[in-house]
Computed example of a mutant assay.
Amino acid sequence: MDTKRATIPCTGTLFDRSEYEERQRRVTEAVERAGLDALLVTSQSHLRYLTGDSGASTYFAPHPLILSPGREPTFVVRKFDEESIRAFSCIDGIIPYTQAYELTTVCGDVLRRLNLHNKRVGMELARSSLAPADVNALQQELPDLKVVDASKLVTCVAAVKSEVEIEALREAAIVTDLAINTFYELLREGVTETEMAAAIRKKVNAAGKELAPPLNVPFGERLRLPHARPANYSIRMNEAAFIELSGVSRDYCAPLCRSAVLGRYPGLESLHKVAEEAIEAAVETIKPGVTTGAVSAAIRKVVAQGARPEALRSRTGYQIGVYWSDRGDLSIEPDAEDVIDMNMSFHIPIILFDEGGYQIGCSESVLVTEHGAEILSRTPHTLHRA
């Protein structure tokens, strides 16, 4: 049998090949600007961004994508998944390995063949998909290899969205709004978190859409448990509810946090007002040329004036795009120096905690335009009262 003719062509990418090739070109240019000879991409979301492949099999061992100026991309993948990766990625140069321990040898052979074995090669050292043992083994295989941390290189390129990415973000925001409005419609005394989560998923799925995990929907006493999975806890009168979720379109997410009160809860209601004002300060501050640290400062100034300093326990934003969030992405946090540019997109969650440790707050997903921040949601971030 002619194995080449039997190979399944790439048919499963979510965007046209030209979109991925443009992303690879931009990353390769960034590799050159960084003074590197190549980049080994191993982050699951970065592989999705650059190739279309989900990276679902990287649990077995890293699947390094090797990008080097003047060379075609090379994907080192597990043999078991080779045909799936050919079908669901846009990479033609695929080199397989069979057992996890073979990765180092095979990857080393590829780097030798590309004459990169003694060059400056960037690696995503701060990403969980690349273990220290992987790096050590490769350096033992190639003792003259010069490993450079390039964890944020793809992040910074991917932060600026193309037109098709922006379209996907807008589509995801529509799904998010559908889910949030379902939450408002169904919130009543006695409904449980699990019932609410199931009803939201059912409504979204019935519309032919989907949500990206997780779906956080704590009620009442469980507001003290951020990111807790839905439980069989029913909301009662004069309790609050919080929801955080994201619709997804072509892997692109537009997350949102919203809060509601069933009856009255004066303490949390006043705290939510502070979160609303902080969101509005962030939207007012975001524009091309401003740093993410400056946006953080504007948010924290509002919180400091309107609530206890300890009410805010986390950073106040991060870039969004492929998947929901990733360690090492651009972050809206104190003293951060990343410069905001046009067509970047961020999720800005302002989650505050009262003296009893109960969370309340809201968020917006925004797109940076030449005029400032465009809010993607059509659901107001004011507190919902049921």
Score class of each variant (00 low, 15 high):
Ser43Leu: 02
Val135Pro: 13
Leu215Tyr: 04
Ile235Tyr: 01
Glu167Lys: 14
Leu138Lys: 05
Leu116Thr: 03
Leu103Glu: 04
Leu114Met: 14
Asn232Val: 12
Glu210Gly: 15
Leu186Ala: 09
Phe183Thr: 02
Ser314Met: 11
Ser129Gly: 13
Pro266Glu: 00
Arg300Asn: 09
Gly55Tyr: 04
Leu50Met: 07
Glu269Thr: 09
Ser162Met: 06
Arg222His: 04
Asn118Gly: 13
Tyr318Ile: 00
His63Ala: 15
Glu269Val: 07
Arg201Asp: 13
Leu376Phe: 09
Cys257Val: 15
Thr182Gly: 11
His227Ile: 00
Ala278Thr: 05
Arg308Gln: 06
Ser270Arg: 12
Leu138Phe: 13
Trp324Pro: 00
Gly208Tyr: 11
Glu83Asn: 12
Arg86Asp: 03
Glu141Ala: 14
Gly372Lys: 04
Arg313Gln: 15
Ala56Tyr: 13
Ser151Arg: 08
Ile348Ser: 05
Ile360Ser: 11
Ala336Thr: 01
Val154Trp: 05
Arg313Ile: 10
Glu195Ser: 11
Glu124Gly: 02
Val368Thr: 02
Val135Asp: 09
Ala199Thr: 09
Ser54Trp: 10
Ala199Leu: 13
Glu244Asn: 12
Ala131Val: 10
Ala126Lys: 14
Tyr318Arg: 05
Ile200Gln: 01
Asp251Gln: 08
Ser325Gln: 13
Glu355Asp: 07
Arg308Gly: 12
Gly12Thr: 10
Thr58Met: 12
Ala311Leu: 01
Leu186Trp: 09
Phe346Val: 05
Trp324Thr: 15
Ser296Trp: 08
Tyr358Arg: 14
Gln24Ser: 10
His272Asn: 08
Pro96Ala: 04
Ser18Gln: 14
Arg5Ala: 13
Thr11Lys: 14
Met237Thr: 14
Thr182Gln: 13
Gly52Ser: 11
Glu124Leu: 00
Ile299Asp: 00
Leu50Trp: 03
Leu367His: 00
Val31Tyr: 05
Phe346Met: 01
Ala87Cys: 08
Pro255Ala: 03
Ala133Arg: 13
Ala150Glu: 08
Arg170Phe: 08
Ile299Cys: 09
Lys203Leu: 03
Ala281Asp: 09
Glu370Lys: 09
Ala61Pro: 04
Gly306Ile: 06
Ser246Leu: 01
Ala199Gly: 07
Gly247Trp: 05
Val191Asn: 12
Leu103Thr: 02
Arg71Ile: 00
Thr74Phe: 06
Ala197Leu: 03
Ser18Tyr: 02
Ser162Thr: 05
Gly372Ser: 10
Pro230Cys: 03
Ala275Arg: 06
Gln99Glu: 15
Ala30Arg: 09
Ile91Asn: 07
Ala386Asp: 08
Ala126Gly: 10
Thr182Tyr: 08
Asn343Ile: 03
Pro96Lys: 10
Ala30Phe: 07
Arg327Phe: 12
Tyr323Trp: 14
Met1Ser: 15
Cys253Gln: 06
Ala282Cys: 10
Thr105Ile: 11
Glu72Lys: 07
Ser331Cys: 14
Lys287Glu: 08
Ala241Phe: 01
Leu312His: 00
Ala228Glu: 13
Ser345Asn: 03
Gly220Arg: 12
Leu178Arg: 15
Asn238Lys: 03
Pro309Gly: 08
Pro64Ala: 09
Phe183Trp: 11
Glu185Val: 00
Arg25Trp: 10
Asn238Trp: 04
Ala304Val: 07
